[in-house]
């Protein structure tokens, strides 16, 4: 319904946004802009920080690591999340609500606590290695921490809820009649899955995948605890440059590259999926 009394005349109401706006300007926009500007002013004006970053294999490898891990994490979470979201959308609400509680509990459990659990589980003498050796899958304990395998496992664990929840929302809205129609027209289950359900769920998969990918790109805690220093990702590079080497120019340049990639993907997400929702 149209409300006219509480809204007042056209153009009003922006004053209420002012406190939050000022806070974000002073402590978000200006600091971030300051950091980025240091990438072209320190140690001397010019683009040499970007030349160093994009010109040496050491740094290129860090970016490749980041994209590789984010890509693999996105793929694995999508593969797990699709069947789970599908089942959640159609199973009895009671069981679904139990599963949701598990998903939310894991999502809201302290990040460090979850990463700590995986550090212990994946260490040489840890439970995962014991299990693998007990099952006869390996005779030597595998090196699962201080490398990208550990980072990937830890990140899949953290990102899974962020893929399941949006996917669930999309599958829930699909009209079952469409799939009944597919069945009536003689489609087998495999055909209906491939040619009806998956295409209809595709926007959810794409939107969840984009979100997980973007979040993974900038992740710091899990990669630095499970990955070790020889397998750095971009976020660790930024922290290392700023905190240990006090090289604000390089830190700012790496931050700028990460920021551009993130915002570009975010804009893509808004364009692809928000336009549809409206």
């Amino acid at each position: 319904m149209l409300s006219f009394l509480s809204q007042g005349r056209r153009g009003s109401g922006w004053g209420m946004a002012l406190p939050a706006l000022l806070l974000l300007l002073a402590f978000f926009v200006i600091p971030v802009a300051g950091l980025l500007s240091r990438s072209v002013t320190e140690p001397q004006p010019g683009l040499q920080n970007y030349e160093t970053l994009l010109g040496s294999f050491t740094y290129i490898r860090i970016f490749l690591n980041t994209f590789l891990v984010s890509g693999v994490v996105t793929l694995i979470t999508a593969l797990i999340a699709f069947p789970v979201a599908w089942a959640l959308a159609i199973m009895s609400p009671r069981i679904a609500s139990v599963l949701f509680a598990v998903i939310l509990l894991s999502m809201w459990t302290n990040l460090l606590a979850r990463t700590y659990a995986w550090m212990v589980l994946l260490q040489q003498t840890g439970l995962v290695n014991k299990l693998l050796m007990g099952l006869g899958l390996t005779s030597q304990p595998l090196q699962l921490t201080n490398n990208l395998i550990g980072v990937t496992i830890g990140m899949v664990y953290i990102m899974l809820p962020f893929m399941i929840l949006p996917l669930y929302g999309v599958i829930r809205k699909i009209d079952p009649a469409i799939l009944q129609a597919a069945a009536l027209c003689g489609a087998t289950k495999g055909q209906a899955l491939r040619r009806v359900l998956l295409p209809l769920a595709a926007p959810g998969i794409a939107s969840g995948a984009l979100m997980v990918f973007v979040m993974s790109l900038g992740y710091f805690v899990t990669p630095s605890l499970l990955g070790g220093t020889s397998n750095m990702m971009v976020a660790e590079l930024i922290v290392q440059q700023v905190q240990s080497l006090v090289n604000w120019g390089m830190g700012g340049a790496a931050a700028f590259i990460l920021l551009v990639v993130t915002l570009a993907l975010y804009a893509l997400q808004l364009r692809l999926f928000d336009a549809e929702a409206r």
Binding site: W14, A17, A20, L21, L24, F27, F28, I30, P31, V32, G34, L35, R38, V214, L217, G218, Y219, F220, A235, I238, V239, V242, W248, G251, A255, L258, L259, T262, L263, Y266, L270
Partner: peptide, 24 residues
């Protein structure tokens, strides 16, 4: 636009916000 702006701190990697605020 304002709504999208209010949500950007959620989208941007925390590490960038952290380093930027640290400098400020």
């Amino acid at each position: 636009v304002l709504r999208a702006f209010f949500l950007t701190p959620m989208v941007l990697p925390v590490v960038i916000i952290a380093v930027a605020l640290y400098a400020a």
